[in-house]
Design a protein around this nucleic acid. Structure first.
Lengths: 185, 185
DNA sequence: TATTGTTATACTCTATAACTATA
DNA sequence: TATAGTTATAGAGTATAACAATA
């Protein structure tokens, strides 16, 4: 991307300072590569996509059933998309779906033993890939700084839905708590 | 994702230190959101996808024609995928494809005036979104640090093709030079 | 023989809109 | 009426393998 290096070569044509531009590119390319490789690994090792892995991970992390809406948050951008993925996971025997007694509109998604087993099986390789690709060249301070910065960016984005955000999703009320904070509690 | 917070809760189950895990999540979620919103903007404003925008941007930045292979680098992960996207762009009149005289196996892709115009048209909004979403909460030092870190990560990944990397792409010989370095030269 | 690119094909994924059912 | 979720459907994107042509 680019041709927008000159701080203001043309009138009215906004640009980014070179430093920001380079940062933007490095960020997008890195994550694109990481996503792609991690996805490849998961498909090969577990016959699941990255999205599906994220859903299993959410369930594993929650330590219990979640409603569809809770499950969707941040992973999928449309309701039907989640229904589709959940359908695949259910067909594969990795989750079950049942009506939530307390609110019969809701669907309670539960990780099956097979689902949990699959998650445990692919996790080491996943972790390993992330460690090799993402963290291999960083020291503790780098990780700290990167985490701090990306957390700020994420919060900025969550708080900054574009002019016309998605219809209506995300209702469960995320506390914007760092995912790593929770235990298997 | 998770249930892998405990540094070593189970034997043989690798994990990541909480700090790394949180950083990983923040990074992936942020970029996912950014990609999604930027893609939305481009489709609305210019009826092109983010991938297509990246291809136009590469051509605009190059300041002249590129071969398919040069164009692909880093943006697309399969040859046929690029042919597909190039077909769309050509059909839309944004690029042309011709045989490269010096090597008749190659296809030379040229940005048309319409393509250049479209790129210029959507660029401001794109830049604006990146500025708002990505950089709004960062000061110069943050940008510097983030750029430094992500550049290292990108280089790490480029140098670290997974066990079984893609067949054979990427031949043009990237010098791993920061994208922002080049001008419209 | 290796490389560049295209085609055919099959599949995955996403999103919109219409719909059902419960609150 | 608003919310939770599903379904139908249609389109966009991706990847593999087979292919043609040039180096």
């Amino acid at each position: 991307m680019a041709s927008d290096h000159s701080a203001s070569s043309a009138p009215g044509v906004p640009s980014l300072p070179p430093q920001q531009l380079a940062t933007y590119f490095a960020l997008m390319e890195s994550v694109s590569l990481l996503q792609h490789q991690v996805d490849q690994h998961l498909r090969k090792e577990g016959a699941i996509s990255y999205v599906q892995f994220q859903l299993l991970a959410r369930l594993a992390d929650a330590g219990g059933p979640l409603t569809m809406t809770q499950l969707a948050d941040g992973v999928v951008y449309s309701r039907s998309g989640l229904t589709y993925q959940a359908g695949l996971l259910e067909k594969a025997g990795l989750i079950t779906r049942d009506t939530y007694p307390d609110d019969e509109r809701a669907t309670l998604v539960t990780l099956t033993d097979d689902g949990a087993a699959l998650f445990r099986r692919v996790l080491p390789g996943h972790i390993d890939a992330v460690r090799r690709l993402l963290f291999a060249s960083l020291n503790d301070q780098d990780v700290q700084q990167l985490g701090d910065i990306m957390t700020r960016i994420r919060d900025q984005m969550r708080a900054h839905p574009p002019r016309s955000a998605a219809p209506r999703k995300r209702r469960t009320g995320r506390k914007a708590s760092p995912p790593a904070a929770a235990g298997t509690d």
